[in-house]
Each structure stands twice: as structure tokens, then as C-alpha cells.
Design a protein around this nucleic acid. Structure first.
Lengths: 255, 255
DNA sequence: ATCAATAAACTTGTAAACAATTTTATATAT
DNA sequence: ATATATAAAATTGTTTACAAGTTTATTGAT
């Protein structure tokens, strides 16, 4: 075995927006089988996007990713390819990868798609909403409310995403769940771009109201609440000013 | 420039299930810019799946793909990675790629997802259903009927897919259209596996009825027809016998 | 003849080297 | 000073060669 790769490892990586969890600390390789390196990177980048540490417009050069994740370029490209396919990064030929910046038009489509998917799933979710499940959902919503209270915006955002995912999972359709997961991760980029600094108001409260309707078996009510909720979140976005945010960033990082 | 690659080109490829369109004959590179090789392969494989020339269980070895498409292994892997991400091929570590075989459980989820997506899109589609558009849809349905008449099953299947795609496109939501495209391509694999040899009856007729409702502006009727249509297509599947088809194939190609 | 162990052939996985492109920096002329 | 052209650096794209794994074929024993 050669010295492996090319003199990497042992670097600062102090304030990197990408957090690397050492391989052996995760449960995935409990059996001893190491998880593929490209998946490690994929999950780390996805998590960073979900927590808004990686913001739209940020560059992901191969060399930097190789260092951060201690991977070969091939594995890095594999991960970037997957992220590109999920529309989380833009892969420009010969010019590298950047975190994607959904356009306003794309944004409208995504929220419309979410409305369709999440309302369509609701009847099945209500049918599966046992008291135990509802308790779990309420717990998430309460955590979310606390995060909002303390001004921890990205934590609140993450919990909101988890809430919507758990509701969707109740419907028991893996294909639909995966589709929604893709829409939700792109929603994180949208909020990072167009989300109002003060955050969308009333989200945790509406989540709690939704759980109430679900537990009561009120299908029509739950559907209406979900639809209205998504519309309100979309309406809180600001497309006028913040579109510039990306441009500014591009300018600054165009070193 | 070196002699390029490694002694490929000039082979039989007579009855290959994958049809390769020579690069320069397509419109994509009208400006002179050659289309990336991996995309050529991706599109060829997708087309072969849509026309049921590539059937579930078939192996796609890298070497064979390199020869057929005159590509390097890297481009082939890129195409396979994309196909795997779209669930059209299974990528087994160290064991290569095979055309995917959706399970019965997956099948139920996919048809359920189609029902959701296509009925949710219908109101918008009806709103966009001008007489010209309806004429186009009817033309597709009539071609389809003719194909069924002449026993050209795969042609009929392709036209059916095109019909559903065109209807969805009317809604004008690219995100949803892409999602449906993924579901429809997987439906082709499902039909190849579990579709009754005689084909699902009455499909072109129901397509025509749907266009009538759409042109009349009958949203509720169109939604109901679409939902019922998808249910009927799913019910025509046969999960008992044909699951064996894959196994048989595996046995024969296990050379 | 059937089965197990071994060896060969084949296939995928990965790294290193090289080529091509893009970006940044420098020099020169207007 | 601004702008243009040239050169250097950095980054991505691709091939080649080799390593590791899997499948198939062969050999030998029961």
C-alpha cells in the first residue's frame, strides 16, 4: 500500500462550513464495514445546507473537498454529481461546483409542488396519526418554538423541516417521502436566499394546530391547515432585495 | 493528441438493445459544440428503457458500454451514476450495473405517487387545454390506438407515456414535470416486468375521453377520469407469474 | 457424479499523471 | 489611469495503469 493520496490530513479546518464526522463515530458502519467516502461527503454537505452553514453561491472546489473529507478526487466528484442531480449544487463545466441558487420562478414551482405533495399525503398521515406519533410531532414543534424564542434561526428551520418530513413519513409511501425530501432541502436554499431576516412568523403555532387536527381525525381541516401554512411561508419570502445577495457574494468571492 | 482511448470502434453492435445515434446527426450540437459523451449514453439508455429494448435484469458492464458508445470508462460511470440515481439501474458495489427491477411494493408506491401528481396537476392542465393542444393530445391517442390495433406494444407504450407527459407539461410546473418523468420511466420497467402480455385494455379510449373532459373545461370529470385510468392500468398488472421473469433472465445470462 | 478448494479470467475501484480550460496576475500601450 | 494583451497559476477533465474484488473455470477429493 502506498502512502495513500497526496499529503493531505492535519489541517486547520477550524471554521469550515462543512462539519466532518469521523467515520467510526457513526452508526452506519457498526458492522465494521466502512461507509463509502463519497457518501460521507454527501451527507456532510447536505447537513450543512440544511443548517444553512453552506449558503447559495459558495464554491465547492475539488481540492478543498479532498482536504476537508480526506478523499480522492474521484469520490469528491461522485458526491458532487449526486448533489448536482438533486439540484443542491450547480456543476458548471470546467468551472467547478457552487451551492445552487434557486430562482424566484423555481421557488414558486417548488412551493407549489410542496403544496400538492403534502396535502395529497395528508389523508394517509391522519389515518396513521396515533397519540404516540402526535406526541412526537408536538415535541418537535415545541422545540421549534423554543428555538424561535431564543433567536436560533437555523435550529428552528431544521426542526421545521423535520416536522414536515415526519408528517410525510406517516403516509408510508417511500417514493413520495423521497420526493418531498428533495423539495425540502431545496427549500433551505430558498430561505437562505429570500427568507426574511426576522423569520416567518407563527410557524410553530401552525404546526401545533395541524397536529391537533390530525389527532382529531379531521382530514379536511388538516389538509386546509397544511395548504394555508405552506402558502403563508411562501408569502413571507422577499424577492426584491435579497436576490442581490447572491450577486454580492459572487462579487466578493470572485478573487 | 494520442491515439485516443484503447482500440475501440468498428464492432458489430448489430442487435444491441442500445441504439446509438451518431453525435453529429442530432440537433443538440448544431452550434458545433459536441454534446458530452455521458449524456449521449444516458439518453440512449433512457430511450432503450422507454421502448422496452432494455429489460429489467439486463447487465450493463462498463467495458460493453465503452465499446457501444465509444466512451472512456469515466463517462460511462457518470452516465450509470445518473441512471442509478433515477432508479433505472441498480449499482451494486464491485458487481456492476443492471437495469432495475422494481418490486411489487415499489410498484404500488409509484402508481400511488402518479395518481397524486397527475390528479393534482389536472386543474392547471385543464386551464391550459386550448383546442390546439387538445388536437395534439388526440393525435397522440389516435396514433396509440393504431399501434395497439397492429399489436405494436412498445410503440403504444411509448405513445401512452408521451400522452401523460404532455398533459402534465400543460400545468407549466417544471419541477412537477420532472418528478412525473421519473415516475413514468420507472413505470416502463414495471410494465416490462408485470405487464400482461395482451396489454392493458382500453387505454387509448380512456385517453380520448380524458381529452374530451379537458376541452369541455370539466375539471372534476377530468380529475376523476385520470384517477380511474391510473387505477385501471395498475390493476391490469400481474404480480404472480411474472416476478419469475427476472429470475429466469438472471439464470440465462449468468454465463 | 457431486462437491469443495484452487486458479484463472473478468470486472469494478482508485490513484497518479497528464491535458485542457479557466481564472488571476503582470506587463504594455493608448 | 484604463484597457488590452500576455504570462502564470489554479482548477477541472481525461487517460492510463494498477489494485482489489467477483465471477467463472479447473482440479482434486469423497
Amino acid at each position: 500500500m502506498s502512502e495513500n493520496r497526496s499529503g493531505r490530513r492535519g489541517r486547520g479546518k477550524a471554521h469550515s462550513p462543512i462539519e466532518v464526522v469521523e467515520a467510526d463515530t457513526l452508526a452506519a458502519d457498526a458492522a465494521g464495514a466502512a461507509r463509502p467516502g463519497d457518501q460521507v461527503m454527501y451527507e456532510a454537505v447536505l447537513a450543512a445546507v440544511m443548517e444553512s452553514r453552506l449558503r447559495p453561491g459558495m464554491r465547492l472546489t475539488e481540492a478543498a473537498c479532498c482536504e476537508i473529507f480526506d478523499l480522492g478526487r474521484l469520490a469528491v466528484r461522485k458526491a458532487l454529481l449526486r448533489l448536482a442531480h438533486e439540484k443542491l449544487v450547480d456543476l458548471r463545466p470546467n468551472r467547478g461546483a457552487v451551492v445552487a441558487s434557486p430562482t424566484p420562478a423555481e421557488t414558486r414551482e417548488i412551493y407549489f409542488a410542496r403544496r400538492m405533495v403534502e396535502t395529497a399525503l395528508m389523508p394517509l398521515a391522519v389515518a396513521a396519526a396515533t397519540p404516540a406519533v402526535c406526541a412526537e410531532l408536538r415535541a418537535i414543534a415545541h422545540e421549534e418554538a423554543a428555538a424561535v424564542e431564543q433567536g436560533e434561526r437555523s435550529a428552528a428551520l431544521m426542526l421545521s423541516g423535520r416536522f414536515h418530513m415526519r408528517v410525510a413519513e406517516l403516509a408510508g409511501n417511500g417514493v413520495m417521502t423521497e420526493i418531498l425530501a428533495g423539495l425540502l432541502s431545496r427549500t433551505r436554499l430558498i430561505v437562505a436566499l429570500y427568507g426574511p431576516p426576522e423569520g416567518s412568523p407563527g410557524v410553530p403555532e401552525r404546526h401545533l394546530a395541524l397536529v391537533d387536527a390530525m389527532e382529531a381525525g379531521d382530514v379536511a381541516g388538516a389538509v386546509a391547515l397544511m395548504e394555508r401554512h405552506i402558502i403563508l411561508v411562501e408569502q413571507a419570502l422577499r424577492f426584491d432585495v435579497p436576490a442581490r445577495e447572491t450577486d454580492l457574494f459572487d462579487i466578493f468571492t470572485r478573487r
